[in-house]
């Protein structure tokens, strides 16, 4: 099995973020994911490369789609997958994280997938456990597998990422998806724009290797990819933007606005969507939308990540 693996060894023990990955690391993961797509489209989807390995999905924030995507990815590779959802209200969050980490570590898992509301939680966990850690989203910091699946979706539709103009629209301030995508897309040579009201822009955004816009009309012009971000409910009624209808009026993606982008521009969304808030239904379900493909690519990318991190050739190598 191991000597038939055609991909180079992934030189990291954990996947905590896109930051720190070389473009070649990213391309290798995408190549691996491409192969996983083919496997997933066969009627016999199951492989056994991870047979006997234990994967624990530790979710401190509810996330049906990311958690099931990781679960399916592990199962398709033959791993034993256990899901742990820890309601963040049950105890004080921080204590739960470290206590749970210690407990889980004693069960000797091979890989831990963690989702937590605090930035840096995945990195903290990685210091505490003896196995590989995959960050499935830590606060407003990073969500590396989302950026990878977005890249795979774009690469398969457009052939390459270098040279494309990608517009990321919406709540950039609170978005881990935006941060991971900004790093990844820049690493692979895309031009990245962010479009948001200034109340939802991070401080110093113009130094984040992006071109910021506060107008959808300006920012969408000539874009190859339009990536919408989810706006959390608690942020749309007066705290960051005045109201849903005002937000949709100025920052929602409808078919008229989409015409400003390139004719063949892709429409993406990490989900779950707020239809009529950040995106109109006809656009979400329209011909340019690749939102369903993103979900499919999600499983493939997570298979690639699990396989790369648990690659037996990696044993003894440093992270």
């Amino acid at each position: 099995m191991t000597n038939t693996d055609p991909f180079p060894v992934f030189p990291h023990r954990h996947l905590l973020g896109i930051k720190g990955l070389l473009p070649s690391d990213i391309e290798t993961l995408l190549d691996r994911a491409d192969a996983a797509v083919s496997l997933s489209r066969q009627s016999e989807k199951k492989r056994s490369v991870l047979r006997g390995r234990t994967q624990i999905n530790l979710f401190f924030e509810a996330s049906t789609r990311t958690q099931s995507s990781f679960e399916l990815a592990g199962k398709r590779l033959g791993a034993d997958v256990m899901n742990m959802s820890v309601a963040s209200s049950s105890t004080k969050k921080g204590e739960t994280l470290l206590d749970t980490a210690t407990t889980l570590n004693a069960m000797r898992p091979d890989i831990l997938v963690i989702r937590h509301s605090a930035a840096g939680a995945a990195a903290l966990l990685a210091q505490k456990v003896g196995c590989s850690v995959v960050n499935a989203g830590d606060g407003a910091h990073e969500h590396p597998t989302q950026a990878l699946l977005d890249a795979l979706t774009i690469r398969r539709a457009k052939g390459a990422i270098a040279g494309l103009t990608v517009a990321i629209c919406g709540d950039v301030l609170h978005s881990r998806v935006a941060r991971s995508n900004i790093i990844l897309l820049n690493a692979l040579g895309a031009r990245v724009r962010v479009i948001a009201p200034s109340t939802l822009m991070p401080s110093g955004v113009s130094q984040m290797s992006v071109e910021p816009f506060t107008s959808m009309e300006e920012g969408l012009k000539g874009a190859d990819v339009v990536m919408m971000l989810r706006l959390q409910r608690e942020r749309m009624s007066g705290s960051y933007v005045p109201s849903v209808r005002e937000y949709f009026r100025f920052f929602g993606l409808d078919s008229e606005r989409l015409k400003l982008a390139k004719e063949d521009a892709l429409v993406m969304h990490p989900g779950p969507m707020n239809r009529g808030v950040e995106i109109a239904s006809d656009v979400a379900d329209g011909p340019q939308s690749v939102i369903q493909e993103q979900v499919e690519m999600g499983v493939a990318v997570r298979m690639a990540v699990l396989e790369a991190l648990l690659d037996p050739r990696q044993a003894g190598e440093t992270a």
Partner: peptide, 15 residues
């Protein structure tokens, strides 16, 4: 501190 470092870390800044 509010600024580029906090923005990349995804941490809320203090102006």
């Amino acid at each position: 501190n509010e600024g580029l470092l906090a923005s990349w870390l995804g941490l809320p800044g203090i102006p």
